[in-house]
Structure formats: structure tokens, C-alpha cells
């Protein structure tokens, strides 16, 4: 038996995905933000760090679409540039965590025995920590910066991928096409890469989609308490932190970054939901 081909399922998948209205909405949100982030340099009316003291705390207007902050910086421009940071944080953490996690999980599932036991106990240990506390401790130890916050969140995110991958591999390992490949003398690595990995992508994709949102929230949470991006970076968590003293008097300082974050994270969650509904046939009626 050969590996299931990719062309037809992809088309099938696309057709199904289009039927999930909410997932499509989510995808549209994400695409819009990606476009805004890419074009941030072109479409922002002001440089994100440009200060204009006379415009301090100006409410939303034509000149300042989302208002201006204490230092007279344009919040709209800062949000556009912040989108870059947030999408980048989500993507880089998910890439780091999923690649390490799947590799480790595949090893555990495929080799089994002692390897499996050791790796799974290791994930147990990581799961024991409340993620934000561990991430904070790591970020604190490495020193507060955006980059270190990313590493910290990745360190706490990989075990879920390891478990997912292991579960998938355990199921696939004994299936005929894998055994056939083994019978014809394929190396373990090749079997993993060629036959097992492609078949485990869908649950990983669902997880990654949810994780994008979760990571964006976690990193901005770390930034909010001072362990992530540092001011004056236009990171959304930093912007909320900087505007926290004005939350009731100058609401626009915090509302717009929070709303942007809500939108993006919702987008990823909707896509994740949609993917899961499609890929989990039990709920798909």
C-alpha cells in the first residue's frame, strides 16, 4: 500500500473548509492582519516611535485615527507595527515548539520502550508547571527581552506537540503501509519522514492554529508584566501596559491594542475550530 496521495484530500479539505463559515471568517481576519503587518511601513501615517508631545493623549480623530498616547505617538501606526511583532511571535514560537515537539514525540512513539518512557515522563514534568509561571521564570533568568520571552514560551509549548505526535505515531506505526516500508528495508528516519510525518499533519495543524493565538496572548502577557518586549517597542502588551494608567480617562490607549489582539487571536481560534471540526469526523455531521 502506498501513502495516501495529497491532491484529492487537499481539494476535499478546501471544499469542506469553505463550508465552515466561521473558519473562513477567521482566515479572513488573519489574512487581513498579515497584509497590514507586511504593509505597515507603507500604510502607517506616522513612524511608530515618532513622538509629538503637543498631541499628547489626543482622542481618535482624522489626524490620529486611533488617538495618540502620552508621548503623542500615533496609536494606529503602533498597532500596525505591533501586528508584525505579534504575528512574528506567534509564528516563531509555534515553529520552534512544533518542530522540537514533533521530532521528540516521533522518536518516543516510533522507537518506543525506554525512549518512550523517558520522553513521556519529561513531558509530564513540563506539564506540571503552570505555563506562564515557568515561562516567566525562564524569561527572568535569561533577562527581559522579546527574544527571550519567545524562547521561554517555546520551552513551555513543545511538550503538547510531543504527546500529539507520539499518539499519532503509535497508531500509524503498526499500519500496513509502514510495515510494508519496513519490510522493503527503509531506514527508520526515512519511514518517519516519508510515511508517518505527512499523515500526522492534520492534528498538529489544529494544535498549531490554537497555539498561535495562545502564544500571542502569552507573550503579550509577559510583556505586560515586563518580561517580554521592552518599551517603546509597539508591542500590544507593552502598549496596554503603558496605557494602563489611563484606562478610564483615555480609553483609546488600551482599547485598540486589546481589540487588535482579540481579533487576531479570535481569527486563529476560529481557524483552529474549523480545522478540528473538519478533521474530527465524530462531530462532523
Amino acid at each position: 500500500m502506498a501513502t495516501p496521495q495529497t491532491a484529492t484530500p487537499l481539494r476535499l479539505f478546501t471544499r469542506r473548509f469553505r463550508k465552515e463559515t466561521t473558519a473562513v471568517i477567521g482566515l479572513v481576519i488573519i489574512v487581513v492582519f498579515v497584509i497590514l503587518a507586511v504593509l505597515a511601513g507603507l500604510i502607517s501615517p506616522y513612524p511608530p516611535l515618532e513622538q509629538n508631545i503637543p498631541a499628547s493623549l489626543q482622542p481618535p480623530s482624522v489626524a490620529y485615527l486611533f488617538g495618540a498616547d502620552k508621548l503623542g505617538r500615533d496609536i494606529f501606526s503602533r498597532i500596525l507595527h505591533g501586528a508584525r511583532i505579534s504575528l512574528f511571535t506567534g509564528l516563531s514560537v509555534v515553529v520552534m515548539a512544533s518542530s522540537v515537539g514533533t521530532l521528540v514525540g516521533a522518536i518516543a512513539g516510533y522507537l518506543g520502550g525506554w525512549w518512550d518512557e523517558a520522553i513521556m515522563r519529561l513531558t509530564d514534568i513540563f506539564f506540571a508547571f503552570p505555563s506562564l509561571i515557568l515561562a516567566m521564570a525562564i524569561a527572568g533568568a535569561l533577562g527581559p527581552s522579546l527574544q527571550n520571552a519567545l524562547i521561554a514560551v517555546a520551552v513551555v509549548s513543545w511538550p503538547i506537540y510531543a504527546r500529539l505526535m507520539r499518539g499519532q505515531v503509535l497508531v500509524l506505526r503498526d499500519q500496513e503501509f509502514v510495515q510494508a516500508a519496513r519490510a522493503i528495508g527503509m531506514s527508520n528516519l526515512r519511514i518517519l519522514l516519508r510515511h508517518i510525518l505527512p499523515n500526522t499533519l492534520s492534528p498538529l495543524l489544529v494544535q498549531a492554529s490554537f497555539d498561535m493565538g495562545g502564544t500571542i496572548l502569552a507573550v503579550s502577557g509577559l510583556s505586560f508584566i515586563g518580561f517580554g518586549a521592552q518599551p517603546p517597542t509597539p508591542e500590544w502588551g507593552v502598549m496596554i501596559s503603558e496605557g494602563r494608567n489611563y484606562i478610564t480617562t483615555q480609553w483609546w490607549l488600551t482599547f485598540f491594542p486589546a481589540f487588535a489582539m482579540l481579533l487576531v487571536v479570535t481569527g486563529f481560534n476560529l481557524v483552529g475550530d474549523g480545522l478540528r471540526d473538519i478533521l474530527d469526523p465524530r462531530l462532523n455531521k
Binding site: G213, S220, F224, W236, L262, N269, L270
Partner: peptide, 14 residues
């Protein structure tokens, strides 16, 4: 959906 996507620190302040 909103509950899972909202930054908790913003809701708290608000």
C-alpha cells in the same frame, strides 16, 4: 470564543 481570545490583563483593568 471571546473568553479564549481576550487578554485577561485588559479585562481586569477594564
Amino acid at each position: 470564543l471571546v473568553g479564549g481570545s481576550m487578554p485577561v490583563f485588559y479585562i481586569g483593568l477594564l
